[in-house]
Write a protein that binds this DNA or RNA. Structure first.
Lengths: 139, 139
DNA sequence: TTGCGTGCAAAGGTTTTGCATGGCA
DNA sequence: TGCCATGCAAAACCTTTGCACGCAA
């Protein structure tokens, strides 16, 4: 956060909720719901505006993981900004898994070398069918 | 299309527009615009309902390529349903390119073998920075 | 005091739905 | 005739914006 940026109750509540849910992808609606449950009286407008700043400042990342609903957001720890990974999302059951392996690096290097394109893994979602759904379909 | 599915002027117009623009990703709004330009009087409701059927029947594929705007759609030729490719999308200039290379296959095989996940390339978008934008940023 | 932050309401855009009418077979 | 398709309007969603007021520094 910059110096011309005031500390407020709402910002603190929202940031804390992000930090408490580091491992989750939160939607604006989920954040609002939590605030209401806590009687914290934070408006949706404020949530969106606060998220926007957190994304700009780099401590929260924006994803579009679910085609049906809107954006979701996740807190990024300082030391983990380089720990990038793909997401695998099952189009049947919606299950989301993280993929972090060598092949990814190799693909990215190839794409950069031959196609001049720098892939941002953290934004990328590979859609497909997970093992469970595949087996269920085979029956 | 099934037998309990009537041929109408609107369906024909929409399907033809898809076929004429095989190489493009069309949004519902673009289709409506075209229909209006042709004085074809097709409502947005009908466009969405018709697209839904085309997607279900497998001759049109739905994508979410642009985070800001909504879904877009592309006609799939009968013989080309297996010709799948990744999309590369530049998060700065919005440029979209198609990627169809060996490394992709290798990554998919790895993911299937080690993570039990069957990737659907056609749905997948790799986000990042294209060559032009990277060079512009370096200046 | 200054200027950013907040909340409400309203608008924006995309997509869906209810309902009566219209048209295919 | 029977059923599906259409169009309008309205709603449902997610997100943004205008404006007045509140609050941090």
């Amino acid at each position: 956060m910059r110096s011309n940026d005031y500390k407020t109750r709402q910002k603190e509540l929202i940031l804390n909720f992000f930090i408490e849910n580091k491992e989750k992808h939160l939607t604006a609606a989920e954040i609002l719901k939590h605030m209401n449950a806590q009687d914290s009286n934070v408006s949706m407008t404020t949530i969106y505006r606060c998220i926007e700043k957190l994304v700009s400042s780099g401590c929260v990342r924006k994803y579009f993981l679910d085609e049906r609903s809107g954006a979701c957001y996740q807190y990024i720890e300082d030391g983990h900004t380089c720990h990038e990974h793909f997401h695998l999302k099952c189009i049947e059951c919606g299950m989301l898994t993280h993929l972090d392996c060598q092949h990814m690096q190799s693909l990215n290097q190839h794409i950069l070398k031959h196609h001049g394109f720098t892939v941002d893994n953290s934004r990328t979602v590979l859609y497909g069918i997970c093992e469970k759904c595949l087996k269920r379909n085979e029956r």
